[in-house]
Design a protein around this nucleic acid. Structure first.
Length: 427
RNA sequence: UCCGCGAUAGCUCAAUGGUGGAGCAUUCGGCUGUUAACCGAAGGGUUGCAGGUUCGAGCCCUGCUCGCGGAGCCA
């Protein structure tokens, strides 16, 4: 692997990879090889290699698959600090006229060639950070005795009854829908296991066309029995700190490739500021926004609020009218739901949405009726309130928005290898 | 769904209503330390599609298609 090449200084090694870029100056050629772990400049001097190999090194195109043998040498001028004095070159397979050149390209072209664009150093850096975030998510919950539960992707009815879902035929049973959240099923699992999380793809058929939306994205949803809203917020802030600090520790080089300013990320330490919806409305009005009490916060509202803080901010106790049916109302004021959203700094918006769930059978049944949801579809969910109901809470974190925020991306489409968007489902 | 902007060489972009160009990529030549290398040369075009105005349309008008940015909805 190229990232380990420094351990072999002075020795002859053979490296396999793809030709990232090539420069030449008469009798000397510089071939930059990449293998996914790093980049290695390989030097071909005329005379040091055979005429035949020198000729091949001259002809091969960008992204040709190569096997290069040579001696590792520390070299300050080379990116990475080491380079290879090549003695041999084997072409595994040739590549000609690779579409993505080192020069500028437009977004349409890059998205059409997403399968090839992934090879660029920027995309490689993003994918590595995405992986580190995924690993941090799993480590965090695993270390705290949460059990990973996998919830169904095909569901018989809308989970929350709010968003538009993708629909499909399900044999003789009628319509089925792609899940928008595993939460309801996670609640059932939490009643079995205490502390659980699910982590998988979810689907939204809304015709959202913004830099923050995908139709298919990944969400992690912890659910905890015997936990109230406050416990939920404690968990959320510890979770975010863990994720961000893990990435800072292990992926600083990749963040540098992306040109990410790290100051805001370094601030992500407990405690995170907590404000109520009422306080959020006050902030908006102080900033000259004519905000009507009772509305949900829009994208620009979220940016204004998050700009008041140097780290993510938790907004809790939203008007129950704008939130989902399963959220417990505040016993001190029925107008509010015991909900919490976490807004990322720098305008990245809502990355976490959570709540304490309604645990009373009669109240939940009333909510289902008020929202005109079919009771039959929720009988099993109501059962959870019938057989040993307990206060419980959880939240969902959108992976792509988190990746975008940590990486400082302009658009979520770069945060996942093959984004699915309203006007694009290829490649 | 609504508002705004755009579509010219493989890619990124120029071109006053009057003979469509440049850089990169490709091919050929030059250069023994390049950093998106550089220098010289060559090939490369139904200007998104359909119609209209005009002596003449890449440019003006209408419709369509596709894309981009934003709003709403949401994570």
């Amino acid at each position: 692997m190229i990232k380990e090449v420094g351990k072999f200084a002075g020795q002859e090694v053979t490296v396999k990879g793809w030709l990232y870029n090539k420069r030449s100056s008469g009798k000397i050629k510089f071939l930059i090889l990449r293998d996914g772990t790093g980049y290695l400049q390989c030097i071909f001097f005329k005379g040091a290699v055979s005429e035949e190999i020198f000729e091949i090194a001259d002809k091969i195109g960008q992204e040709s698959a190569l096997e290069i043998t040579g001696k590792v040498r520390a070299e300050g001028r080379a990116p990475g600090g080491f380079e290879l004095d090549a003695t041999n070159l084997k072409v595994i397979s040739e590549s000609h006229e690779f579409p993505i050149t080192p020069k500028d390209h437009g977004i349409e072209f890059l998205m059409d060639n997403r399968h090839l664009w992934l090879r660029s150093n920027r995309q490689v850096a993003i994918l590595k950070i995405r992986h580190r975030i995924t690993k941090a998510i799993r480590d965090f919950f695993d270390e705290r005795d949460f059990i990973l539960v996998d919830t169904p992707i095909l569901t018989p009815a809308a989970c929350e009854g709010t968003s538009t879902l993708f629909e499909t035929e399900y044999f003789d049973l009628g319509k089925a829908y792609l899940t928008q959240s595993g939460q309801l099923y996670a609640e059932a699992n939490a009643m079995a296991l205490g502390k659980v999380y699910n982590f998988g793809p979810v689907f939204r058929a809304e015709k959202s066309k913004t830099r923050r939306h995908l139709t298919e994205f990944w969400m992690v949803e912890p659910e905890v029995a015997f936990a109230d809203l406050n416990d939920n917020m404690n968990l959320a802030e510890e979770f975010l700190e863990y994720i961000v600090q893990s990435v800072l520790q292990d992926r600083e080089e990749e963040l540098k490739v992306l040109g990410r300013d790290l100051t805001m990320l370094k601030n992500v330490k407990r405690p995170l500021p907590r404000i109520s919806y009422d306080e959020a409305v006050e902030i908006l009005r102080k900033n000259g926004i004519d905000f009507e009490w009772g509305n949900d916060l829009g994208g620009t509202d979220e940016t204004i609020i998050s700009n008041q803080f140097d780290r993510p901010v938790m907004v809790h106790r939203y008007p129950s009218a704008v939130k989902a049916f399963y959220m417990k109302h505040d016993p001190e004021n029925d107008k509010f739901a015991l909900a919490v959203d976490v807004l990322a700094p720098e305008g990245y918006g809502e990355i976490i949405g959570g709540s304490q769930r309604e645990d009373n059978f009669d109240v939940l049944l009333k909510r289902i009726e008020e929202h005109n949801l079919p009771r039959e579809a929720f009988e099993w969910y109501l059962d959870l309130r019938k057989y040993g109901s307990v206060p419980h809470s959880g939240f969902g974190l959108g992976l792509e928005r988190t990746v975008s925020w940590i990486c400082g991306l302009e658009h979520v489409r770069e945060s996942i290898p093959f984004p699915r968007m309203i006007y694009r489902n290829t490649p």
